[in-house]
Write a protein that binds this DNA or RNA. Structure first.
Lengths: 220, 220
DNA sequence: GACAGTTTTAGACCAGCGGTCTAATTCCGT
DNA sequence: ACGGAATTAGACCGCTGGTCTAAAACTGTC
């Protein structure tokens, strides 16, 4: 289902063959990975692709659309990793969190393997303009998180004393926060520690979402 | 203690009188609040201040320094709200979290009262370039958080199975996340709900930091 | 008061930005 | 071979943050 976002590549572009699409997407990816979104120069991408402004704007409505297409190419192969909210319908709380831990581990693994994907996605963490450029994708992802949490709530795995949208916000931001920590400290981490640490860090995501009756802590 | 950051205003500027400082800071604040950091136009600020490029660059090394000075003016009155790590030295876990909850409530209140301060700080949430412009301030704030968490750890209020820097990152990002949620939903919130909700939301910050022995949850 | 040296000031200027637009060219159905 | 549509090149636009020159204002010394 093609998005009607103003930042999608024009339909024409998708009709091009893969090698011709790569003509733009390869230099664009390199530029975005190297400089992020705002600091990336569209003129440089065009020059590096050996293309002209006219042709480029014929296929893309602007810099944002090029970023969208660049990200899309890397995101597409990941679609299979996500599970649907329906798969979580009949499950007990322990199973729910187990499934989420598994998904989290899989995504972590993918990010470690694909540094380019990781760099592109991390651009989204950092730059508001980049988020706006792919706001459709982002809204879809946010909706999926909220769907998963709603499913978790319906089986008693997720607290219901705070708005779901707040929980989804926090969940997403904790994910980002932990990912960023690992990205920043990956080099100085002894081999093997990373996996163990990553597993323990999952509790940073889980505990704030748990029903607070199960999670009293030292405060009344 | 003046910072040696390349983005501080030059010493000359601080020697100017308050009304003359406001000549730049008022238009700058308006521009940054309206457009954020990157989208703010230095040329517009200068024109709006009725100043010249030369004079402006005489007092500020660039746009970042102007942003720094703008933020500093709003942040200065808040210094008294923070407590020192030492004040947390001899305290039990319940007291530690109580003190943090109080601080959090105070800061929340301030943000509600001072919309300009809130908008400026939220620029920091969103724009990496803005963060870089005041990296000194940010590093100091991060260090204070880590200090507070270290104090909490020494009295058994904070978990020690994950690196302190990771906990500090997550704590800061959860703070930001929750603040952003309230900023986004403040309008559609019934009066009075906000305070209660905000109090409950504090658990989003606390629970991931608690020792996990006190916080087993449904997963082994 | 005259001069010299420093500090302050104005604003022209720079390269580069994302995006628009015109005009030439290529393509394609008839 | 023609005509209209799709495609393409790149000049051009207003704007950006930042640099630089040269004039003006200020300061201390005779």
């Amino acid at each position: 289902m093609p998005s009607s976002s103003p930042n999608s590549p024009r339909a024409r572009f998708l009709e091009l063959g893969e090698p011709e699409r790569a003509l733009w997407l390869d230099p664009a990816e390199a530029e975005f990975v190297a400089h992020g979104f705002e600091r990336a120069s569209l003129n440089r991408i065009i020059a590096s692709a050996g293309e002209s402004k006219g042709r480029t704007y014929h296929y893309f409505s602007g810099k944002g659309a090029l970023f969208d297409a660049t990200l899309e190419r890397r995101l597409e192969p990941l679609a299979g990793l996500m599970f649907t909210p329906e798969a979580l319908a009949d499950i007990d709380p322990a199973g729910f969190w187990k499934a989420l831990a598994t998904l989290s581990a899989r995504l972590t693994e993918r990010f470690q393997q694909d540094a380019t994907l990781a760099a592109l996605v991390r651009t989204l963490h950092r730059e508001k303009a980049a988020q706006e450029a792919v706001s459709d994708k982002l809204a879809g992802f946010r909706a999926r998180i909220e769907g998963v949490l709603a499913a978790g709530r319906s089986v008693g795995a997720v607290r219901d004393d705070l708005p779901l949208s707040m929980l989804a916000d926090v969940a997403l931001d904790v994910l980002i926060s932990v990912d960023r920590w690992f990205a920043r400290h990956a080099d100085s981490l002894p081999d093997g520690d990373e996996a163990a640490l990553s597993q323990r860090a999952f509790s940073l995501l889980m505990t704030p979402l748990l029903p607070q009756s199960k999670n009293e802590g030292p405060l009344s």
